[in-house]
Amino acid sequence: MSKLVFSSSPHLKAPKTTKSIMLDVSIALLPATIVGIIFFGFNALLVMAISVVSAIVAELLYKMLVNKASFKQFWNEFDYTTLVTGLLIGMNMPPLVDWYIPIIASFFAIIIVKMIFGGTGKNIVNPAIAGRIFVFISFGIVAAGGFVDPIVTASASGQGTFMSPIVAGSTPLGDILKNGLSATGATNMDMFLGLVPGTIGETSAVALIVGGIYLVARGVIDWKWPVIYIGVTGLFTVVLNGFNFAWFLPSILSGGLMLGAIFMATDYTTTPNTQLGNVVYFVALGLITATLRHNNGTEVVSFAILLMNLVVPLIDKYIVPKPFGYKKPAKKEGK
């Protein structure tokens, strides 16, 4: 009978583990990844591969050098979070980015943002977003370009080629934020399908939504949170533009909003722990995104998420649910 195991209750476990959840997220990212490769070509595949491999290598190096872990230990503890981070970094890169930039982004994300704080679950901001912002600011990718038009050039609306009306290499969001709605030739349908310039993984709203539906169906994320974020951003953009509802669709379909709202803002570690806290978090995200976009004329989703990530501990400190059966203590008389 020595083989009987002794342990504390409960003796049952839910089927989901950190590993299975992160695997689900990886699967949910596949549609956008594949669409990115189709639209932007072999280079997109290369960028994403470099990002993923360098993220995993960064974690391996850290664990071997700092934690003195063996490769076997690393492999047993490997929970796909690094895979997701690496993939997200790749998807956040312009298709023609220099090869060393995603490597720097991945190393920064994994080592500085994730591992130094204690690994999975201990990071205070989303590693992929921090990595993206680090290289965007350091290397000025936005200014320098690296954006190209999709190689699939037929417009979704079927009217002529897609490339002609817009300035090659500039994102539709940048155009409309700088010069108004009419500045871009991209139709809403183009943006929905992803036939516009942008980072590898952010352009195709439909592919991202398919991934999002998969995550909701698998019980990984709550549908309310991306919907609140995207909805508030769209509506507040409408408000900021004098209740012009023509702004609604372009503002939610363009830029990194879909990718950010479905995959990066919903990251467990950097969202509040309570339902009410999450409402506050995602509404604030939407308001900040719409406001900063309006005032700065550039894409700010990742900055908005980074900013709100830092507010999460504060939200969690002040929004604590009252226990079942809680009664407000009666005020004491006198004094």
Binding site: P10, K13, T120, G121, T270
Partner: peptide
């Protein structure tokens, strides 16, 4: 298979 023998890992704050 029915019971829980898994080792605890870091909390991921999923709520």
């Amino acid at each position: 298979k029915e019971t829980n023998l898994d080792k605890p890992t870091n909390c991921i704050n999923c709520g």
